[in-house]
């Protein structure tokens, strides 16, 4: 599903994901975790819809979370509040359990953010971003992305060709299957590489390799992008300043120490700035939807008026 935030300039999307993923990965404060988890989940809902989001998460992320949450107290035995003892004689502590849950949340939200990243940061946006810094590599990535579907197509043609000379082995012996698979890969390699010379010629003949190559893109950095970038930077600064005052300190070892709760002014500002930052895509998208609805109502009204005038 195309959301409004993905239509912003690639720099915006990249900056956003860089920030949220890094913060989610490195800061373990429970409030941060909660904010990040909530935002990532809501953005997933917007991008994938309810059904797909739940399916993805219940199938893969939930079991992962449980495993991680359980693994921590099994292998780590620090902390002071002993709850029970394992058969091996090692203690199970409250601190390790809490830390396990925090860890699991962290891991899960990183995955959720990456799910959004995959949908928003398409390959061409990535190539655009790095085209200026790494022109050869990004061109290579672009070419690889072109070759993969092309070669997959070739592979199908090759498989059909082999089938039609009686070398179909889909229900044959394993040894034949392997032999045939290797032959297909071999045909594919030659086919792809031998024809690649044309491509090199076509690149050279269009001046590839001249000095001063530029990188064209269909993306434009406009006013809307500038506005949201300023907002993002301000929020990020607020967040870092607030964070560096130590208001959001957390420690799980040896005892659980959480600062900033109950809320005071500083921690409140820090949390709020983080929440706003993480929720930006959701806010942008919802606002956009609201605007359209309002616009359409407006148009309808005008049309109605016009209709009355004409009749």
């Amino acid at each position: 599903m195309e959301d409004n935030f993905s239509s912003y300039h690639p720099v915006i999307s990249f900056f956003f994901f860089l920030f949220v993923i890094c913060v989610s990965m490195f800061l373990m404060h429970p409030v941060f975790l909660a904010i990040s988890f909530f935002s990532a989940f809501s953005y997933n809902l917007i991008l994938y819809g309810i059904k797909k989001t739940l399916k993805n998460n219940l199938l893969f992320i939930l079991p992962m979370m449980i495993i991680i949450a359980l693994a921590n107290p099994m292998f780590n035995h620090y902390g002071v509040t002993v709850i029970t003892y394992l058969p091996t004689g090692n203690p199970v502590t409250l601190e390790t359990i809490i830390y396990g849950i925090a860890m699991a949340t962290m891991f899960c939200e990183v995955l959720l953010w990456f799910a959004c990243y995959n949908e928003v940061m398409t390959s061409d946006k990535f190539i655009y971003l790095f085209g200026k810094i790494m022109p050869s590599i990004s061109l290579m990535i672009s070419m690889t992305l072109r070759f993969v579907p092309m070669l997959r197509n070739h592979m199908r043609v090759i498989a059909n060709g082999q089938k039609c000379i009686g070398r179909d082995t889909s229900n044959g012996k394993t040894t034949d299957k392997i032999k045939n698979g290797v032959k297909k890969v071999s045909i594919l390699t030659t086919w792809a590489l031998e024809n690649a010379i044309d491509r090199a010629d076509s690149m050279r003949s269009r001046g590839y390799g001249l000095k001063g190559r530029t990188a064209f893109s269909i993306y434009r950095f406009d006013k809307r992008d500038r506005a949201i970038l300023i907002v993002m930077i301000l929020l990020a600064i607020t967040f870092f300043v607030g964070n560096s005052t130590g208001n959001c300190y957390v420690s799980y070892d040896p005892i659980v120490k959480v600062k900033g709760i109950p809320l005071d002014l500083y921690s409140c500002i820090t949390f709020l700035s983080y929440l706003t930052f993480c929720m930006l895509p959701v806010i942008v998208d919802l606002y956009d939807k609201y605007k359209w609805k309002a616009l359409r109502n407006n148009i309808n009204k005008k049309e109605n008026r016009g209709y009355r005038l004409w009749t």
């Binding site: 061409d124 061109l139 672009s142 070419m143 072109r146 690649a196 044309d198 491509r199 064209f216």
Partner: peptide, 11 residues
Amino acid sequence: DNQIVTDKVWH
């Protein structure tokens, strides 16, 4: 097919 380099038409 052999002359096209990139993956997008505009590119």
